[in-house]
């Protein structure tokens, strides 16, 4: 089988990114998964074991002092070198802030074709086909690359699979990176508290609140239900614009697109802008006091009622069940 490269992102603290499992699973569908990583210091045995556990048959580990000092270019150079050395049939990257910049530059550099924001991949008669969920899931589009190396960015949380564990062979290379056209990193500001809640993108359950919550104080209700369900917290644009919660929680056409098993919309009317970010959820529950709210058109279970009455009772019922 041909090599398929997966760019593994590592934080400046040396943590392997959460996207890695899905990337290696996608790579395994298309060929032999090879993890490519650029770091300032050599990978630890734990890193190697972890990547093997996620399915990497081989690790192409580039060590460069530029990693963590400049944006994106170290990973780009590592991937370019790996493409030269390993002649892959495809490259997969996370559709993350870094991943897509690397993918874009690699496509220009290698003459490859870029298939962006894929939700799945498959091999079809030797050709790599990417699936895209377009306009908030209203359309499914399949794309391929007719000339050149297929380079694919994968939407966060889109792939549930896990590649079979492997014992990776490690190729360590040292890389000199020309930093001339790179942006310089002056410092990292880690998010103050890493919340116990799951990340919005990729969460199995999402509880979102809208304008109907009325205030930032009342928005706590959304968080309480989320915690009772072990869910991520989301919000409609109206709630974000009103300052109930930060922009990173926004679900919709602008903001995150989510496809959880369960999506609960509290006090959200369901404007088309919002539906575009959540209508591919497997089950949708909506609670809204306006019985004509468009959210009910897509809800599997809808309650016309007051969130401040229904949600506390629901939390009690859920807690009673678990205790």
């Amino acid at each position: 089988m041909s090599n398929v490269l997966a760019l593994v992102e590592m934080s400046h603290r040396g943590e392997i990114a959460g996207s890695t499992r899905g990337l290696l699973a996608a790579a395994a569908k298309l060929g032999t998964p090879v993890a490519v990583v650029a770091t300032a210091t050599a990978l630890t045995d734990d890193d190697v074991a972890r990547l093997g556990g996620l399915g990497a048959a081989q690790i192409y580990a580039a060590v460069t002092a530029a990693a963590g000092a400049v944006l994106v270019i170290p990973a780009l150079e590592a991937l370019s070198e790996a493409v030269r050395a390993l002649q892959p049939s495809a490259v997969v990257l996370a559709n993350s802030v870094d991943g897509r910049e690397v993918a874009a530059r690699l496509a220009v550099r290698t003459g490859g074709g870029l298939l962006a924001d894929a939700v799945d991949v498959r091999a079809d008669a030797g050709k790599v086909v990417a699936l895209h969920s377009v306009f908030g899931g209203a359309y499914t589009v399949e794309s391929a690359v007719d000339v050149g190396l297929p380079i694919i960015t994968l939407r966060s949380g889109a792939i549930d699979d896990h590649a079979p564990a492997a014992t990776p062979e490690v190729s360590a290379v040292s890389l000199t990176v020309e930093q001339g056209n790179a942006a310089v990193i002056d410092g990292f500001n880690d998010e103050a508290a890493i919340l116990a809640r799951p990340e919005l993108r990729g969460a199995a359950t999402v509880v979102s609140g809208g304008r109907g919550l009325g205030s930032a104080q009342n928005f706590v209700l959304v968080e309480q239900l989320a915690d009772a369900l072990g869910a991520a917290v989301g919000a409609s644009r109206a709630a974000v614009d009103a300052g109930f919660i930060g922009h990173t929680a926004q679900v919709g056409q602008t903001g995150a697109s989510v496809s959880p098993h369960l999506y609960i919309a509290l006090g959200i009317s369901g404007a088309i802008q919002h539906r575009a970010g959540m209508q591919t959820a497997k089950t949708i529950v909506a609670i809204n006091k306006d019985g004509d709210a468009p959210i009910f058109d897509v809800a599997d279970f809808g309650i016309v009622g007051d969130v401040f009455t229904v949600v506390p009772k629901l939390i009690d019922a859920l807690n009673a069940r678990t205790s």
Binding site: D146, F301, G302
Partner: peptide, 21 residues
């Protein structure tokens, strides 16, 4: 260098059960 292989429209979601509290 990229091509579209197919485009399909997702069937619209149907409304499920709706109850008044």
């Amino acid at each position: 260098s990229t091509v579209i292989v197919s485009t399909t429209e997702r069937t619209a979601r149907a409304a499920g059960r709706k109850i008044v509290d």
